[in-house]
Amino acid sequence: MNRLTNLIAATYTPLNAAGDLNLDQVEPMVEHLLESGITGLYVCGSTGEGMSLSTDDRREVAAAYVKAAAGRVPVIIQVGHNSLDEARQLSAHAQEIGADIISATCPSYFKVCTVEGLVDCMAEVASGAPDLPFYYYHIPTLTGSNIDMVDFLTQGAKQISNLAGLKYTAATLHEFQECLGLQDGRFDVVWGFDEMLLGALATGATAGIGSTYNIAAPLYRRLIEAFGSGYVIEARRLQALSINMIRTLNQYPFHPAMKAVLGMKGLDVGGCRLPQGRLSDADVESLRTKLTSIGFFEWSVSCLTTSDS
């Protein structure tokens, strides 16, 4: 299995003013991401509003991203659904269209409360695409499932033949580190909190999947470079810029704000579907002013690394 490396963008789903899919914008979005140094695409996850899209919409979005990527970087399709049957069908579709990896959240309306229950659920989902690696998407703040991931990987490997790893979106670095080392590093565990990337690198992460990589990949590339070269103070400075950016974005509904920033960068991806919606024109201009004041439009494009003093 080829492990994921560096920065995987959790991609946005382009919508038009009416909230319908605007798939003509997928190719420009992919080219923007590749030019900024992205090394993979994570499609229809939380960022891509997978849970707000119909199953047919999700199939169309997945196919558009696979086509636009054209084999240049791995494409991961998030197939999680409250209906395991729907999730399994989305897995099968991902395999049919040539995706590289499938990933899934667990059902979230009826909570998954045991390791055994989570393994059973994910086994059903993963069975739809037996030829593709499967990464469980651990995001307890949204799913409400706080299953121990060490136990899940240990038990899941016995039942899910294509279990490859995790998309780990939780702030528990100690558990993340334990998952990385489990069974002599058998599993590919990918970090999912952009504002804590430096901490994850320090505990052994080799890849991250995140939303803000869409708008500031050069910043994170420099952070990884600085840390890898031993310039820890510089890496901290770069992570602090990320934290300030995310703090600014969080003054608004986060994903509508992110889509607004992509619009500022010339990518027409629209707003979000309800319940998230879109920013008002006044909020867009307010956000632009705040991002300008912190230098975002300079350092999100180029953020040169300097040595520690």
Rank of each mutant, 00 (worst) to 15 (best):
P133V: 05
T143L: 00
Y231W: 14
D20L: 02
R3K: 15
T114R: 11
L182C: 11
M122P: 03
L197Q: 11
D120R: 11
S83Y: 09
R88K: 15
N6K: 12
R59N: 07
L163G: 09
D24F: 00
W299R: 01
T105W: 07
N2E: 15
N162K: 05
N162V: 07
A217T: 15
L219Q: 03
L173Q: 13
G228H: 09
V269R: 05
G40N: 03
A17E: 15
V79L: 01
F296C: 10
T13V: 11
I160V: 10
W299L: 06
D100Y: 10
L201N: 05
Y220C: 03
A99C: 03
I147Y: 02
G144L: 06
V150K: 00
A10P: 13
L4T: 08
V189R: 02
Q239S: 00
T305D: 00
V261G: 04
G80R: 08
H138C: 01
A235L: 05
K111N: 04
E234Y: 07
M245Y: 07
D24S: 14
Q183E: 15
R59D: 02
G199W: 03
L238F: 07
F193N: 14
L249M: 13
G277T: 10
R58V: 00
I77Q: 04
I243T: 11
Q183Y: 12
Q177I: 03
V30A: 03
Y231S: 00
S286P: 04
S127N: 02
Y220I: 01
T5Q: 14
G19R: 06
T172F: 15
Q239M: 04
L201K: 05
G50I: 12
L279T: 06
Q25D: 01
S127R: 02
G270E: 07
W299H: 06
G80N: 07
E285D: 14
F110N: 07
D100H: 11
N82D: 15
I215L: 13
L267K: 07
M258F: 08
A64N: 03
Q159R: 15
G210F: 10
R72F: 06
N16L: 09
L84V: 15
R72Q: 06
D184Q: 13
T47Y: 08
A63K: 13
G117W: 08
G295T: 12
A126Q: 05
D120S: 12
G98R: 07
L173A: 10
L23I: 11
G165E: 11
L15V: 12
G50Y: 10
W299M: 04
I102E: 04
C44A: 14
E285T: 14
N244G: 00
G192T: 09
R72V: 00
Q159H: 13
G270V: 08
L41G: 05
D131Y: 08
M264E: 10
L90C: 09
A257T: 01
K265H: 10
H255G: 02
F296Q: 10
G230I: 12
T292C: 01
L180H: 08
C121M: 03
A207I: 09
L166P: 01
N250D: 14
A64S: 14
Q78C: 08
